[in-house]
């Protein structure tokens, strides 16, 4: 194994690991653990993958905005303190010293602040995990791995890849239809579904032709004993990665308070 890179991990195992971590994280409300997961994911991406930092930043922006939105939502509209889940009654230590506000306001605010941070950091932890997968996995590898490791039938795998690679053509078709409408003096606003409908009719027609072509080349998996150009496999380090991630989060849930 030359170089520890996230790209070398099996995509299906990576996806399953991310999903396991997400489900585990949804059972807890630890701000520290959420932040630790987020930071660990970013560090892994920055130093143990070939992901470009620019792309990482570009995808992080919507996550940060979302987290900020959730933070404010939690701050303003957290549930009444009485019926928050257990473990939420801890007043944030930092605010206990601020004596400018009446105690009641401080307590309410700090409770809400806890809920707000819990919500926002959870989204960040999920975003870190999602990015860990998205930025270190080629789509084609993921689909091929789903076919070999998760028994996705070949017709689904190749169908998904065909449709995915058809998307630029669909975009071009949409532009063509819009131009054709303009030439015929039919006004279609930005929100009008008319061009999209025409585009979809044409796309479905293409997809039928493509399906026929793919079937004639055996891409529907009906031919017995067909071979594959690449067969992704699960190695020991895939299992080790999955166990380490789940184990660390379980440890965090057990020992962080």
């Amino acid at each position: 194994m030359s170089g520890l890179k996230l790209e070398r991990l099996n995509p299906s195992v990576k996806a399953a690991t991310v999903l396991t971590c997400v489900v585990l994280l949804s059972f807890q409300y630890l701000i520290t653990l959420n932040l630790a997961v987020f930071i660990a994911a970013l560090l892994l991406l920055m130093f143990f993958s070939e992901a470009r930092w620019g792309r990482l930043a570009a995808l992080l922006v919507p996550a940060l905005i979302g987290a900020f939105g959730l933070f404010l939502m939690g701050l303003y509209y957290a549930r009444a303190p009485g019926d928050l889940p257990a473990g939420n009654d801890a007043v944030l230590p930092g605010l206990a010293h601020v004596t400018l506000m009446p105690y009641a306001v401080r307590a309410a605010l700090s409770r809400n602040l806890t809920a707000a941070l819990q919500l926002a950091t959870r989204l960040l932890a999920y975003a870190g995990l999602g990015l860990l997968f998205s930025l270190s996995t080629r789509g084609e590898d993921f689909v091929l791995s789903l076919m070999h490791q998760c028994r996705l039938p070949p017709k689904f795998a190749y169908g998904i890849l065909a449709a995915f690679n058809l998307m630029p053509n669909m975009a071009r078709e949409l532009r063509n239809v819009r131009t054709a409408f303009a030439v015929r003096n039919i006004h279609a606003g930005i929100f009008s579904l008319k061009p999209a409908f025409t585009m979809l009719v044409n796309s479905v027609r293409w997809s039928e032709a493509i399906a026929m072509a793919m079937e004639s080349r055996g891409f529907d998996g009906s031919g017995a004993g067909r071979t594959y150009y690449t067969v992704p496999s699960v190695r020991w380090y895939d299992v080790a990665f999955a166990l380490a991630c789940a184990g660390l989060i379980l440890c965090g849930m057990a020992f962080l308070t």
Binding site: P153, K155, F156, Y158, G159, I160, A162, A163, F164, L166, M167, M170, A196, M199, L200, S203, V204, W206, S207, E208, I210, A211, M212, M214, E215, F219, D220
Partner: peptide, 15 residues
């Protein structure tokens, strides 16, 4: 499911 159906659904899903 035939390839035709999968592509039809996938293409509309893309839209």
């Amino acid at each position: 499911w035939k390839l035709k159906d999968i592509l039809m659904i996938a293409v509309s899903a893309a839209l």
